[in-house]
Design a protein around this nucleic acid. Structure first.
Length: 572
RNA sequence: UGGGGCGUAGCCAAGCGGUAAGGCAACGGACUUUGGCUCCGUCAUCGGAGGUUCGAAUCCUCCCGCCCCAGCCA
């Protein structure tokens, strides 16, 4: 059976953006001789499509400039981080097609180095141990419109600071009782420069350093120095860190070490979903989705399970560009990227989701024919397959209407259509049950149209339907997805309103008893297909079994008829 | 009302003083054994107001709007 093997993300045609402009300038003026970036996730959740944008930016830059990109776990907060997340992150980055070779780093591996550097800053008189409580620190910091006031511990002597800091590390003080702070400027208009915290005391088991430390560095103290240690040239992060840049620069300047350039870009927002680890975690923990890889989730693993390819994600990241304005990208753009790649690479098959029985009254009871079907009209090399045909068939319920409007080209009493690759058939009679529901169609076929060809008399039909031979059909479960949320920007809700209120109750529809052509029975988990006239589907990597396949709908095909129906409904 | 950013079509996004790329969506048409694919066509004067200039989306001034910063989160 033909199937499709996922390939790594290829280098898309590089497109210019302001980050590349900056890099070009640095290379031209000699500030840096090469490009060395890093992708620095915190292992406290699964990667989502927003991370994919960052991954493509960072690894893409390294690839295009013949430089390097490190993978670094930004693990400075023991409370939320976990090895499960590290593993998922590595798997997702690899699946996207990127390779960090042996450069798998952890901020937690730099704890000792960071500690020594902190000691250096204390000696230099620009860092001090502060005994203020959390509330006091907040109070002393001031507000955005009111300057802060210096901590009473700000001018402690170097010796005392050194002693206190060593004892903080040794575990002599209770959690939260003291901090190490940088001595910068309590009156700075930039809140981050008002003596920012470098260390906090937290007796928390760390997933990698265990109980080796009871003091942990903050993001600001750890990040830039980690970049420096690794020889990073361009430290690319999202817009909210723009106000951190003066602090990033300050630490590096005080230390006099290798100084990367921080560059900020706008994080990705996707319509009809949420893209924050906090909210995604909440969906997972409250069981509103089946897990981080629920096919409705905007996570890398969710899209993977849904059937979106790494190539499609690469094309998407390339298409959306990199800039500095906050924006929300329309979901249809991602869907277009998925369709574009799937159309070129995936084999076709016939599957009937909501079966309606068709009996060909003039076709022999015991006869079975096999017709040759094209696997992928976009790819001749994909070859053909044989599909069995017999007297009783399944067609899609939506392909029959008893009283059709004029634009409906499909089956209705007295009308003729083509069964793809098989024959023209004409509907003679619709059989109904006691309630008046159509339960079966009696049709006749035209032997002169074998293979689906137009007959010698020049007759034509306006519709071609997909079908499955009833006696050869394989039953399957098929999962149809809609957007997770009903509104474009679910995260923007008035205060006091639950952001989950706009979750789409119809985001998942499970169809049991779908009828598939026999070749699909053994579909390999994660194999992707186009079910003709319906959409792209992916055999679920967790639940699909040989003989009992389970398919997830990745995305529908564009549907001109559906648009007409919708337009008609809106006009009415 | 302090500081830092950003405003080009319904949604992204090029443009860097010389007379508005491209993609998605939408709409119209061609083709069609998937109402798929493909192809053709239509669709903006650049947040606002002044100013500089032969010439401004690009430079200057003021105004308006949106985002970020008061976690011992990242």
């Amino acid at each position: 059976m033909p199937d499709e093997t996922p390939k790594p993300a290829p280098a898309a045609k590089p497109r210019t953006n302001f980050v590349r402009d900056i890099v070009d300038e640095h290379l031209r003026n000699g500030r840096f001789a090469a490009v060395h970036t890093r992708f620095p996730p915190e292992p406290n959740g699964y990667l989502h499509i927003g991370h994919a944008k960052s991954i493509h930016l960072n690894f893409g830059l390294a690839r295009d400039y013949k430089g390097l990109c490190n993978l670094r776990m930004d693990d400075t907060n023991p409370e939320t981080e976990d090895m499960e997340y590290v593993e998922s992150i590595k798997e997702d980055v690899r699946w996207l097609g990127f390779d960090w070779q042996d450069r798998e780093y952890y901020a937690s591996d730099y704890y000792e180095r960071l500690y020594q550097w902190a000691v250096e800053l204390i000696r230099k008189g620009v860092a001090y141990v502060c005994d203020l409580t959390v509330d006091q620190v907040r109070e002393y910091r001031g507000t955005v419109t009111r300057a802060g006031v210096p901590s009473p511990y700000r001018d402690r002597g170097v010796a005392e600071n050194l002693d206190l800091f060593a004892r903080m590390r040794a575990g002599e003080f209770p959690d939260g009782s003291r901090t190490l702070r940088a001595k910068i400027d309590m009156a700075s208009p930039n809140m981050l420069l008002r003596d920012p915290l470098m260390y906090r005391i937290r007796r928390e088991h760390h997933y990698r350093t265990g109980d080796g430390w009871c003091i942990y560095p903050t993001y600001d103290w750890a990040h830039g120095q980690s970049d420096s240690i690794e020889g990073i040239t361009h430290s690319i992060c999202t817009l909210e860190f723009e106000v951190h840049r003066p602090l990033y620069d300050w630490f590096l300047d005080q230390l006099g070490v290798h100084h990367p350039q921080q560059i900020e870009f706008a994080r990705l927002n996707l319509s009809h979903t949420v893209l924050s680890k906090r909210r995604l975690l909440e969906l997972v923990e409250s069981r509103l989705v089946s897990g981080w890889d629920d096919p409705r989730m905007p996570t890398i693993s969710g899209f993977r399970r849904r059937g979106v390819t790494p190539e499609a994600i690469a094309a998407f990241c390339e298409t959306i560009g990199v800039a500095k304005d906050n924006s929300i990208v329309d979901l249809p753009l991602l869907e277009m990227c998925a369709r574009e790649h799937l159309n070129r690479t995936v084999p076709r098959a016939m599957a009937v989701l909501r079966p309606l029985k068709v009996v060909l009254t003039n076709y022999p009871e015991d006869r079975v024919e096999e017709f040759e079907a094209v696997n992928n009209p976009e790819d001749p090399a994909a070859g053909t397959r044989r599909v069995p045909f017999s007297r009783e068939l399944w067609i899609e319920r939506d392909d029959f209407m008893e009283n059709p409007p004029s634009k409906f080209f499909r089956l209705s009493p007295g009308k003729e259509v083509r069964l793809r690759y098989a024959y023209f058939i004409r509907c003679q009679e619709a059989i109904k049950d006691a309630a008046g529901n159509v339960v079966e169609l009696r049709c006749t076929y035209d032997p002169a149209t074998r293979g689906g060809d137009n007959p010698p008399d020049g007759r034509k039909v306006k519709a071609t339907l997909h079908w499955v031979s009833a006696r050869h059909a394989v039953d399957a479960e098929v999962r149809l997805y809609d957007t997770l949320f009903t509104v474009r920007d679910p995260a923007s809700v008035p205060e006091g309103v639950d952001w989950k209120a706009t979750l789409n109750p119809k985001s998942l529809e499970v169809v049991r008893g779908a009828k598939l052509e026999p070749g699909l029975a053994e579909a390999r988990p994660e194999s992707r297909w186009q079910f003709e006239r319906l959409g792209y589907f992916c055999a679920d990597r967790r639940d699909s079994r040989p003989g009992a396949p389970v398919f997830n709908r990745t995305v529908t095909l564009r549907d001109e008829w559906a648009r007409l129906v919708k337009a008609g409904r809106e006009a009415a």
